[in-house]
Amino acid sequence: MDRIPILKLGDALLVTIQVDMHDRLATALEEDLTNRIVKHKAHGVLIDISALEIVDSFIGRMLDNIAAVSRVLDADTVVVGMRPAVAITLVELGLSLAGVRTALNVERGMELIRLRHGAAERDVDVDNAS
C-alpha cells in the first residue's frame, strides 16, 4: 500500500502531500505520524500542501484530525504553503480549520514551532536564548 513519506526536520516532522488523498492513505498517514511523533519526541508537524490544487472537506477533516491527535501528544501542527485560491475557496466552503495553525512556507512554520517550544523550554535550553 502507498504511504506518504515523513521526514525528520530538527525536532519537527515534515510531510509533503503531493498526491490525491484516499481514505486509506489518510488513515495510514495519521497512524504513521502519531508513531513518529512519539518515536522522535517531535514538537511539531509541518504539513506542506503547496502541491494541492484543492482542499475539500475530506482533506480538511484529515488535517483537523492530525492536529487534534498531535496536540494530545504535545506536538503543534502547522499547515504550510496553501495556495491563495485554495484559501479563498476553503473559507467559502465553510472550513475554518480551527484547530490547525498555518504559515506561508516551511521556514515560517519551523519558526512557529521553535518559538512555541523555545518559550516553554527557555530555562533548560540555552541555545534558544538568543
Binding site: I54, S57, A85, V86, T89, E92, L93
Partner: peptide, 27 residues
C-alpha cells in the same frame, strides 16, 4: 476533478473560479 478542471479552463474561468467549481465537484 481533473475533467471539471479541464472544462473550467476551456470556459475561461479564472483560477479562483476554477478552484471553486472543482472543490464543489469533489464534495
Amino acid at each position: 476533478r481533473q475533467q471539471v478542471r479541464l472544462r473550467a479552463v476551456q470556459a475561461g474561468l479564472g483560477l479562483v473560479d476554477q478552484t471553486k467549481i472543482v472543490t464543489a465537484a469533489s464534495e
